[in-house]
Each structure stands twice: as structure tokens, then as C-alpha cells.
Amino acid sequence: MTASPLSLVCPAGTPAALDAAVEAGADAVYCGFADATNARNFPGLNFSPVEMRAAVARTHKAGRSLYIAINTFPRAGEEAAWHRAVDNAAEAGADAVILADLGLLAYAQATHPSLRLHLSVQAAASTPEAIRYLAQTFGVQRVVLPRVLTLAEVTELTAAVAPVETEVFAFGGMCVMAEGRCQLSSYVTGQSPNTHGVCSPAGAVQFRREPGGDVTARLGNVTIDRHPAGAPAGYPTLCKGRFRANATTGYLFEEPTSLNAADHIPGLIKAGVRALKIEGRQRGRAYVARVVGEFRRAIDAAVAGGFTVPDLASEMEGGRATAGAYDRRWR
């Protein structure tokens, strides 16, 4: 495999999506086990330990890497399930585990000293001081940066933490709140994204067609949006719902929109960022194939000196893109 300066890290919620990602040119694929140990704990998604071992074998055969996200916070009294996930990841031959909980990092380091550790975005390490501390304490080798930093801040941070590698989100769903620190969904549903691995759990979501033709979206007992039947939609998350405040009604946190940092690929290469991450383990294999393929081409073109921005509007929430915090104006 060519030594691209920027590794493309791609999501897979099913074995089929994993194959699609490898086929489309992913350098690495990240997956999770089918339980609360990962932050995309959706029904019918993710891998059994047996499927994970097969996935590692297939990925390695193709010359690519497989990372396993164990990026929720172990529930007090149930830590054994998270420890088992780390053990299973090591046993499956994963190239790295992506962890968020400090206690779990300590466990992984002590139990599997040769297992490569990546810091999940859920850990919310946003400064050189925090990252250096985690690298020194646990041997973390790569950190996935929070989606709160501008391109200038990413550049400065990447230089400051070397040789710890940085990985940034390039495309997909976007938390507008600091990741791993948001209790909005659990305030409404009783299930914490941090410990149950799911924001807006499907069992709490309801779409209802009103007599007038509008669609009402509810999470738990809370109305989070209402719009004409044909209007573009996003995920039924609180941060992309419509509310009233200060005598106005609208998307007070964020419109339904997805992150697309493709514009910034040349800047991110220049910044020395090691890896670009595509969000979307909950998405279908068609999404994975399309987005990974476009980003593969975009990265290769940027490395070669030319560059075109892919059009991926149809894959986005609300059919709309934002460069998020990379562009300072977003703040």
C-alpha cells in the first residue's frame, strides 16, 4: 500500500459495510461489538466476536487495518463487559482499540501492553496538555480530536503533541455539543449515550403524521420537531430539533446538517494530521462505498497536487453540509 500522508479511516456497522469500505479504498476500518461498549449501539448493528475475528482476517488480507471502538464509559458494577470487549479485540488481532474511559485505558495498558491505543473523540481531549498527559499515562498513540477545533487550532495542536498522532473527522454526522459530555439524550430518554452507546435510542423515537400532513418527531415525551411532509430531514436528535426561545422558533442549536471537511483536505495534510475519519457506522453499505470512494479520490488528488471537492449532498442530513468548527465562523 502506498504511504499516503493521510490515512482514511472508515466506518463499518456490518461485515458487508466493512467489505464495501475496503473495496472503496479505506486505509483502515473501525467497527464495534454488538453491545453497549461502543457508541453506535443500534439494534441489528455491529459485530459478534466471531464476526470480528473474520473481519480482522479479511481486512488484513487486503493489507488494511482494523480498529475496534470501545468508546463508551463502563457502567459502574458492569465493567467486566468492557474488559471483555478489550480482551476480545486483542484476541481478534485488532490493529488498535479506540477508547474513551480513563479507567478502561488503564486496564488495556496493563492487560494488553502491546495493544495500540487510540483516544476516542468521546474522551474530549482538546488541548496539548490533556493529550500529552494521556500519552504519558497510558501510552496513547493517536488521538481523535473533538469537532470543536478550527483548522488553525488543529494545526497547532498536531505540532504540539507529536509524536502522538492526530485523527480528525472529515465527513458525516456531527455532534454540536462537546462529545462524550452530553447528557441531553439521557435527560429525555433515560439512556445515556455515554454508558448505553446510543443517542436518541430508536425505542424512544416516534414520527407521527398529523392530520394536516405535517410530520411530528418526538423523543420520549418531548416534541423535537414538526415540519411539512416533504421537507428535508435529519436524525431525530435533540441538538438538531426545533424549539422556541427568545420569542423565536427554529433550529436553536443546529440545522439538520452533516460535516464535510473535504475542502480542508490540503490544509489537513499540511497540518500533519495523520488520519481522516468518516463518521457513520449506522449507515448502509451504499453510503460507505460512495463516501469512502469520494474521499479516497479526493485525498489521492490532493497528495498529487490537484484537488476537487466531491459532491456528497445526497448522503447528508438535511441534504446540507457544514465545514463545522474548521471554519471559525461556525462558532
Partner: peptide
């Protein structure tokens, strides 16, 4: 992708 169909309202779910 089901989410893409949903975002563009080509797929309605209740």
C-alpha cells in the same frame, strides 16, 4: 443508504 433516503424524505417511516 436508508438514512440518505430518509434525509431527502423519499423514505417515510412511522
Amino acid at each position: 443508504d436508508g438514512d440518505s433516503l430518509f434525509f431527502s424524505r423519499q423514505l417515510m417511516i412511522e
